[in-house]
Amino acid sequence: MTEVATNDGLLLVGCGNMGRAMLQGWLTAGFIHPNDVHVVEPAEALRAEARVLGVRTYASAEMLHAGFSPATVVLAVKPQIMAAVLPAYRPHVTESVVVSIAAGVPVATLEASLGEVPAVRAMPNTPAAIGKGSTVIFANARVSPQQAERVTRLLSAGGAVHRVEHEALIDAATALSGSGPAYVFHFIEALSAAGTQLGLPPRTALALARETVFGAGALAMAASTPPAELRRQVTSPGGTTEAALRVLTEDDALKTLVRAAATAAYRRAVELARTA
C-alpha cells in the first residue's frame, strides 16, 4: 500500500477504544508508518496494545522530547478530562494541526489551552477500525488548505469524511454517526433476542441478526434508490414484513424512539461543550 507522508509524524494522545480504532485504520491502510506515530497513553495495558502495532509509546507528555512538534496531533481523550490534559501539549503543537475527536469539546477550549493553533474537531465512529466508518469534521480559520487535505486524507483511512462549515453541526453528527453504531449494535441484540424467543438457537439467531443488518446496510449503500423505496420493495401487501412494519410504524413508534435517542445524545454533546 502507498504510504501518505505526514511530514514530521503524528502524535496520538489517548489510545482507548476510539483512538486505537483510528490507529489501526491508519496503519492497516498504510496511511502512515508505525515509526512515525507517537502515542501518549497513561494506562499500561493500553500502551502495551499500542506497542504491538509497532508505534512508539509514552506514559505522559513529559516523556516527549522537548523539541518534538509533529505535523499532526490527534486528541483522543475523554471529554471530561480534556481541559486538564491540554496544557502539557502546548510546547508540542507549534508546527502542528490539532485534531480533537472528543465529543462536545469546542474548538474554543482547544485554543484556550494550546494557543492560536490550526484546530479541527472530528467526530469519527468505531467502524473506522475496519475502514467502514464515517467522520464529520469542522476546521477553524487557521487550518490551511494543505493541513485540511492532510487531515481529511488521514481520517479517510477509516472511511468516509464529511466537512461541515458550522461547528454546532458536529454535535448533531455526534448524535447520528458518532453514537449511531451503538444504536445498531443494540438493534442486533434485540433482533437476535427476538429470534431466540421464537425458538431459534441463540447462535443461529445472532448470526441471522448480524447478517441481516450487514446485508441490508450494504444494499442501502449500493442502491441508487432511497431507503424508503427499498423498504417498499421488500414489503408485500398482506405479507409477513407488512405485519412487522405495522408494529414499528404505528404512531411513528420507531421514528419517535430513534428521534428521542438522537436528541438525548445531541443534548448531552451540547452539555459537554458547555462544561469543557
Rank of each mutant, 00 (worst) to 15 (best):
T2W: 08
D8Y: 02
D8C: 01
L10V: 15
V13Q: 07
G14K: 00
M18L: 12
H33Y: 12
P34R: 08
V39C: 02
A43Y: 15
L46R: 13
L46Q: 13
A50D: 04
A59C: 10
H65K: 14
P70K: 03
T72L: 15
K78S: 09
P79N: 05
P79I: 07
I81V: 15
L86K: 08
V97Y: 07
I101S: 04
A103N: 07
A103Y: 07
V107D: 05
S113G: 15
S113V: 02
L114R: 06
L114H: 06
V117H: 00
A119M: 07
T126W: 00
T126I: 15
I130W: 12
N140F: 06
P145T: 03
V151N: 02
S156A: 14
G158L: 01
G158N: 01
H162E: 10
E165T: 11
H166V: 14
D171S: 09
S179T: 15
F187G: 00
I188V: 15
T196I: 09
L200V: 01
T204Q: 15
L206A: 15
L206S: 10
L208D: 03
A209E: 03
T212Y: 14
A216I: 05
G217L: 03
G217I: 06
L219V: 04
T225G: 02
P227Q: 02
L230H: 08
T235Q: 04
S236W: 05
T240G: 12
A244G: 15
L245G: 05
R246S: 12
D251G: 10
D252H: 13
A253L: 14
A264N: 09
Y266A: 05
R267I: 01
R267Q: 15
